[in-house]
Simulated scan of single mutants.
Amino acid sequence: MDSFEKRLVEAVRRKREAEGLSIRALSSLVGVSFSTLARIERGEGLPDNNSKIRLLEWLGPDGEEAGLTFDRVAFVHFRAAKNVRSPTVHALLRSADLIRRNSGVSFSGESSAAPHQGNEAVTLSKEELEETADRFRKDLGLSPGQPLDSLRVEVEGILLFKLTETKCLERALVKHLSIDACDEWSAMSVPLNQGEDTWAVLLNDCHTVERQRVTLMEECWHILLGHKLTKIARVADGYGRTYDQAEEHDAFYLASATLLPRSAMIDAVSDRSTSADIARKFGTSAELVDYRLKRLGLWREHVGKRIALSSD
């Protein structure tokens, strides 16, 4: 364990014990699993960079007193693999800076300044998510059975930048993000002003059109729901980030519900359409269709599992 990690673990243990918290209680507070925290405190493992950020946030001034700080902080919405490499994060943050400079929107204050954020995540019930998706489609004038191409949707205050088409990024950045790191990220949303009413979405258009559609829809819902921004920071030997699992769930659920409306899914199951048939009709992947059917509780009917009472 290097000196940074040793100081971090010791500072966390001191504050936890001083506040009378169990490891399980701390786990609930910081969003790091109990098993991970217990292993770290026993000296049997190392926290990853995402865990380091959460622990540093919880330590607050106690961490600063121990010389534990973030080297750089940025706030964005971030669609990337859990183990995205530091060079890719660095390239995305550089892209965010360039997009801000070339967007034509005046950003008052430093781009690394913490934006206004609510204290608690606001989660929606399943029915509220379905109703929200239905209203969105109705506002676009779509019928339940009509496909939605989210790449054609214009949302006030959201500017779309496609990676390979935008002119504001350096060639080396585009090469890295489109070739070397293509599978590591899907999209990034960047607030263009401190009021967070104007945004840029950088979309990885090297992915399939079907994947781009759900990715862009998910980013739009993060913005339209007022979700907390992801904090990305360099800590010790690499970048880490925060995220809220409940908000991630709501944004993805809404993206799937917007592209695959409930009533249309019920009709498709009744017609015995396959996942591939439904995907072709609505311009999505079969995997998204399967997710949607399972979340709606339609999987048994979809796969044709018959049920009956025994005659005994």
Rank of each mutant, 00 (worst) to 15 (best):
S186C: 00
K162D: 15
D205N: 15
I158R: 10
A181C: 08
V174S: 03
L203V: 14
E184T: 03
A172S: 13
A172H: 05
A200E: 03
P191S: 08
D205Y: 10
L173S: 14
V174F: 09
C182W: 06
C182M: 07
F161C: 13
V201K: 01
V201W: 07
K162F: 15
A187N: 10
L160S: 06
T164E: 11
L173H: 07
R171K: 14
S186G: 14
S186P: 00
D180P: 00
E184R: 04
T166D: 11
S186N: 08
E156G: 10
L202F: 09
S189T: 13
V174H: 07
L160K: 12
L202S: 01
L169W: 01
N193R: 13
C168Y: 10
H207S: 07
V190H: 00
C168F: 09
W185M: 11
T166I: 09
H176F: 15
T164V: 07
V190D: 02
L163E: 04
K162Q: 15
C206P: 01
N193L: 02
T198W: 02
A181R: 13
L159W: 14
D197H: 12
H176A: 13
L163G: 06
V174W: 07
N193T: 03
C206A: 06
V190I: 15
S186E: 15
T166K: 08
Q194C: 00
L202C: 00
E165W: 03
L163P: 10
A200M: 04
C182N: 08
L202K: 13
S178A: 14
E196T: 06
I158E: 03
D183S: 13
V174C: 04
R171F: 02
L202R: 10
C168H: 13
G157L: 04
F161W: 15
S189P: 00
A181K: 05
M188Y: 05
E184S: 10
G195D: 10
R171Y: 08
A181G: 06
D197E: 09
W185H: 10
E196I: 01
R171D: 14
L192H: 01
H207C: 07
P191T: 08
M188E: 02
F161G: 01
A187D: 12
L192E: 13
E170Y: 04
N204R: 12
I158P: 07
R171M: 07
L202A: 05
T166C: 13
T166E: 12
T198L: 04
K162C: 02
L173I: 14
G157K: 09
T164C: 01
L169N: 02
T164D: 03
E156W: 06
A181Y: 04
D197M: 02
D180S: 14
A172W: 06
D180R: 10
L159R: 14
I179Y: 09
L177P: 03
L169F: 12
L163K: 00
